[in-house]
Amino acid sequence: MKSFWALLSRDVRLAVREGGAIGTALGFFLVVVSLMPLGLGPDLNLLSRIAAGVLWIALLLAALLSLNRIFEADHEDGTLDVLATGPLPLELVTAAKSLAHWITTGIPLAIMAPVLGILLNLDLAAYPILVATTLAGTPAVSFLGAIGAALTMKTRRGGLLLALIVLPLYVPTLIFGISAVSAGAGPTGLAASFLILAAISLVAIVLGPLAAAAALKVQLQ
């Protein structure tokens, strides 16, 4: 357990010190959301109707940008070899690194989402729901993304391949994330969407580290 926390806190510390990844993801998020009204016209009614969808899609794309570094950096400098011979099973190594990715990317993006909601004239009542659903849904983004990151760790043009592999896996998170925020679902629909979203994240938290560890074992050969 001590090793798990050591790895988690090291990854968080690295992300904070190097800063670039978080900053780039947040900047990208801002730019994509700002482009939407430019493409669709400044009609506030239209924007507020599609705000949830735009925010979620932009969030997924922003998170995608930072995924490929989850394992790549540790692979390049040989850290992964040493992590693999440590006392921690590889499944927990991948879990710690996915969790660190969620803390350093998922949470900042989830906090940023309501701020960007202002640009899209998001309904005021939807703000708390937006924060809750992005926080509940983004673990799936990090943990499923880790699978793609482990699979494409050694490939050139890994980023594009990663997007092709991972984005279809994000469909359930996207659908339930948006359906929870969309108005008109009513309180029961909202609760159902939210619970399913959380359940998807739990499945991802179990499946992601297992599959990513299996992929890393192959990659270390």
Binding site: A6, L14, R17, L83
Partner: peptide, 22 residues
């Protein structure tokens, strides 16, 4: 062939991490 050293951590932090982890 590689050192498993992180550039943005200090020398002591690098050694400290492996000490705790391993």
């Amino acid at each position: 062939h590689t050192n498993a050293v992180k550039s943005s951590l200090s020398v002591a932090e690098n050694a400290g991490f492996w000490n705790t982890y391993l």
